[in-house]
């Protein structure tokens, strides 16, 4: 506890840096996964290919990816952009599958009847399919958010500023409290973001609350 109280400012600034890396990656992977998932859900032939590609993407170890990406993209290893791109790729790998499943779960009768009611393809997507797919999309997004926040810490091995630096620094200097603080702070941060997503889901999809048992 003494270590935490003496280093509150440091923990605060590292938490902010942590969020600045994690949040853009989470948002980007959600936004990019939607069209890909939609494509996989509506074009059966592409489904297996897209999902296999996503699975293989997830198989790439994170630390090497942080190192390899700059050689392809031309960023520096410690650039925030490098970390965000890598995290977005992992988020995408998880989210594409969720998005494809979520959009595929909207039944054909629903689609046909909304077309019969006069919805255009775009109108049907935004006003019928997306809201109905919402709960499954949210479930996928929550998994992406939590694992992204945990994964950010690996980039600290390259010297990127985030909560993971507490592990690196604590380990090198033999401060157990610092490592422990880092773990707890990361888990708490993940749980807080997760809870916020649940609240956001309730605000955007009020009907799911009424349907709950």
């Amino acid at each position: 506890m003494g270590w935490v109280l003496a280093n509150l400012e440091l923990i605060g600034s590292r938490t902010v840096s942590h969020l600045l890396l994690a949040v853009p990656a989470i948002v980007l992977s959600f936004v990019l996964a939607l069209p890909l998932g939609w494509f996989a859900a509506t074009h059966q032939w592409s489904r297996a290919t897209l999902l296999t590609a996503a699975g293989l993407l997830y198989a790439i170890p994170s630390l090497p990816l942080f190192v390899v990406l700059p050689t392809i993209l031309g960023f520096g290893v410690r650039d925030a952009a490098n970390v965000i791109v890598a995290l977005t790729l992992y988020g995408l790998a998880l989210m594409v599958r969720s998005a494809a499943d979520a959009l595929a779960s909207v039944g054909a009768p629903v689609r046909l009847s909304s077309t019969a009611l006069g919805y255009s393809a775009a109108g049907r997507f935004w006003q019928v399919e997306l809201p109905l797919a919402g709960p499954v999309l949210l479930a996928g997004l929550r998994v992406v958010a939590v694992s992204t926040i945990s994964l950010v810490t690996v980039s600290s091995l390259l010297g990127v500023d985030n909560l993971g630096l507490l592990f690196v620094d604590g380990f090198q200097r033999g401060i157990l409290a610092e490592v422990l603080t880092g773990i707890i702070a990361t888990v708490v941060l993940a749980l807080v973001i997760d809870a916020l997503l649940v609240l956001l889901g309730r605000a955007l999809m009020p009907w799911t609350r009424a349907a709950r048992r």
């Binding site: 998994v143 939590v146 694992s147 926040i149 945990s150 994964l151 810490t153 690996v154 600290s156 091995l157 909560l163 993971g164 592990f167 690196v168 604590g170 380990f171 033999g174 157990l176 490592v179 422990l180 880092g182 773990i183 990361t186 888990v187 993940a190 749980l191 997760d194």
Partner: peptide, 19 residues
């Protein structure tokens, strides 16, 4: 399974390493 996903592996490695 949910909690384990949030647990940063690097943190666990360094923590157990110190102990």
């Amino acid at each position: 399974t949910g909690a384990a996903r949030a647990l940063p592996t690097l943190g666990v490695v360094t923590l157990v390493g110190l102990i």
